[in-house]
């Protein structure tokens, strides 16, 4: 299998490459359009800040390429948020593949932001979660989130429900870190590779 991990200086991609390596899968870290187009599966990890990520995607023409891809695609963390329409984080327009707007967790007494740590997955509805149980734990680190909508395929709550995972056609994405979520995260990556 030929897997492309999108390279747009989007933070800790090394963890994702190592997670794939643990599954015995070779992946190529690349921004090359032809290589990405030819891949069987695409991973789109990301950390950090939305507007600088979008700037880098535009600089490489990836903002034009990514929405046209038809193979199974998995966004992770910031890589999920970037699939939306707009982010409150420095007021930036995103890729527009999914119809959500990314907003910040509200400042509220006792609510620590970033939402950092292990939280439950709920209302799982996707082959991506085959073999998982409701309430299984995965690892989150984020200050912004996508609200729940028709595209939501798993929820988490902090304290209100938000999209832990989304899907539109071949575009799957998760807010949590599959590569840092123990055996549960590994299972999700395996499921994705089988799609």
């Amino acid at each position: 299998m030929n897997i492309a991990v999108i390279d747009y200086k989007g933070g800790n991609v090394q963890s994702v490459l190592f997670a794939l390596e643990r599954l015995g899968v070779q992946a190529t870290l690349t921004a090359d359009h032809a290589t990405i187009r030819a891949a069987d599966k695409i991973l789109f990890p990301g950390e950090g800040e939305a507007s600088s990520a979008m700037r880098e995607l535009r600089a490489q023409g990836l903002d034009q390429l990514l929405p046209t891809l038809t193979q199974p695609f998995l966004g992770i963390c910031l890589g999920m948020q970037l699939l939306g329409r707009h982010s409150e984080e420095n007021d930036v327009d995103l890729l527009g593949i999914l119809p959500f707007d990314v907003v910040r967790f509200p400042a509220a007494a006792g609510l620590k932001v970033p939402h950092m740590g292990w939280n439950n997955l709920q209302q799982l509805r996707s082959p991506l979660f085959a073999g998982l149980r409701e309430e299984d734990y995965v690892y989150f680190v984020h200050s912004y989130f996508a609200p729940v909508g028709d595209y939501t395929i798993a929820q988490a709550a902090y304290p209100a429900p938000f999209s832990a995972a989304v899907q539109h056609q071949n575009f799957y994405a998760v807010q949590f870190h599959t590569e840092k979520s123990g055996p549960v995260g590994t299972r999700i990556l395996e499921n994705f590779l089988r799609l």
Partner: peptide
């Protein structure tokens, strides 16, 4: 990072942007 599937933090004597970049690029969370 190659072995571990949970997050990890690295500390001790970190003083520059370059230090941090090198650690993150090699898999520190």
């Amino acid at each position: 990072a190659r072995e571990l599937d949970i997050p990890f933090t690295v500390g001790g004597g970190i003083g520059t942007v370059a230090d941090v970049e090198a650690l993150l690029l090699n898999g520190a969370d």
